[in-house]
Amino acid sequence: MTQVFFDMMAAAVITGALGVVLVRNVVYAALCLIVSLMGVAGVYILLSVEFLALVQVLIYGGAVTVLILFALMLTRVRELKQHLDGDQRPLAAVAALALLGAFATMMYKTTWPRDVGQVTVVPFDTIGTALFNRWAVPFEIASGVLLVALVGAIVISMQEEGER
């Protein structure tokens, strides 16, 4: 049963990702990205990490894709369809396939511990306790990074004096 759900989620992730890199229309590519990222949220649920699944839906499904759609709208890429892909598509495909082959060989040559058929549910409160005790300092640094990135993004994209 879980295998069936995993196959469905994997199909959503892979088709969405292929849509992102292959589709000719940039807005469709952004929508394919949403499909792929929601599939990843489903994979998190299969891994019994509901917290990450919620975070994935909120941040990727909500914030990131909206941001990307806004950028597509403001840079007006739809009017410049011929610039979407470069001449190096075959080379890129070869490189990606070589990488995939390397990953697959590495994976099948490694002997994994055989008792990996079971998954432990990670409750919300355990993640929260760990995040605010053992990982409190990285957590605060991450919030500082977010603040700096926010201010930096505003400063960079601000309209300057005398600019059209």
Binding site: V21, V26, H83, D85, G86, Q88, R89
Partner: peptide, 8 residues
């Protein structure tokens, strides 16, 4: 590697 648009 294949896409040339920055957002993509």
């Amino acid at each position: 590697l294949a896409r040339r648009n920055a957002v993509l």
